[in-house]
Design a protein around this nucleic acid. Structure first.
Lengths: 203, 203
DNA sequence: GTCTATAAGAAGATAGAC
DNA sequence: GTCTATCTTCTTATAGAC
């Protein structure tokens, strides 16, 4: 957790780092413990010293660490917007903020692993994603409620609207990170998102 | 393709069916050729008669068949809507139509496999998803353009709006099918989607 | 903590009989 | 077309020296 790692912990971290990379790139089952040990430069037996339950314990550790890290890094500050352009820009920034989280290699890799190896994980381990997204809906709903420009819409519409906005973000993230294997935020992507935000805010 | 299968083709189909089930449930790598042969009730060697390139050829066949089937079954007819409630109901039906496609076991399984085994597939094989979704955006944009109720919005907003609607659908499908492992369309889900459609159509 | 060596079994694939 | 038998390689995991 902290930077004060003993020399031995460095080996453990190395094994985790290599495993994360290989699981994300080639999949959990396709990655053998030998490949991990070789790439990590550690001996065959050492892995079982740090992870007595073997390969699957490494997977669980990676997924768990991933949850913690992404939640921690997804914190963002909100402040009120007075115009619709203001609000649109704010939401765009929120998206870029989320995207930024996945620029971190570890976060990206553990996310990909969590989706791809869904069948090897518990429901709890997979559920984090939905919970984070629900939290995001809450925060954006708050943001919308606080915006003077949107006072016209009825009280019950804030959450559905927030949900729509999260859907817009989520589609881009899934399409790019999971299908296209793209981690670069291009102008093309932004130019696709912005009109969508614009149209849903024009109510 | 047709129903006039020779007896031998039945064995091939059996192998594909069993493989599809096992790949979807346990993953491609975790499923061994022995498990497939045993469950299919066919001998060790026979698999290589039908699929000379082995296990990976089975995967490719499943993914390819999945694309074809889902595209074919996703055809739907549109006709004009005169009121916003009309339009909202129409879009709801479109969603239920898409959902229905995944009620077909084969379609569901090949979809899950395509996402989970992304790293084993070519970019072309993964790209189908995005192309289908783009096609859906087109169709919904047409639908919106034809709706007398929405004549007020500017010409350039139909596609962004259609994109938003597809995002709403896509989020539900991904969350339920991939994360929650749920294939049942509940009232709760419908009651989450409807207000979102309502709010984006209230422009 | 870290190493080497190896057990014990399972993997994908093939050869060749019928 | 379908089968049995088997080859070769690789897998996870452990035992035990240092």
């Amino acid at each position: 957790m902290s930077k004060s790692e003993t020399k031995s912990d460095q080996h453990k971290e190395k094994i985790l780092k290599i495993s994360r990379e290989m699981f994300a790139k080639n999949g959990y089952e396709a990655t053998t413990t030998r490949m991990i040990n070789q790439a990590a430069g550690t001996a065959e037996g050492l892995m079982y010293y740090y992870f007595p339950h073997g390969k699957h314990e490494i997977l669980n550790t990676i997924v768990h660490q991933g949850i913690i890290n992404r939640v921690n890094q997804l914190q963002m500050t909100f402040n009120d917007c007075v115009t619709k352009t203001d609000l649109e820009q704010r939401l765009m920034l929120i998206f870029e903020n989320i995207w930024q989280v996945f620029q971190d290699k570890e976060n990206y890799q553990s996310f990909v692993i969590t989706i791809h190896e869904r069948m090897l994980l518990s429901d709890d381990q997979a559920d984090w994603l939905l919970q984070i997204l629900e939290g995001l809906v809450d925060e954006i709903a708050q943001q919308l409620k606080a915006a003077p420009v949107l006072q016209s819409i009825s009280k019950g519409q804030y959450r559905p609207l927030a949900r729509v906005i999260v859907s817009i973000f989520q589609k881009v993230i899934y399409d790019e990170l999971l299908i296209k294997n793209n981690r670069q935020l291009t102008d093309e992507m932004k130019n696709l998102i912005r009109p969508q935000l614009s149209v849903v805010l024009s109510i």
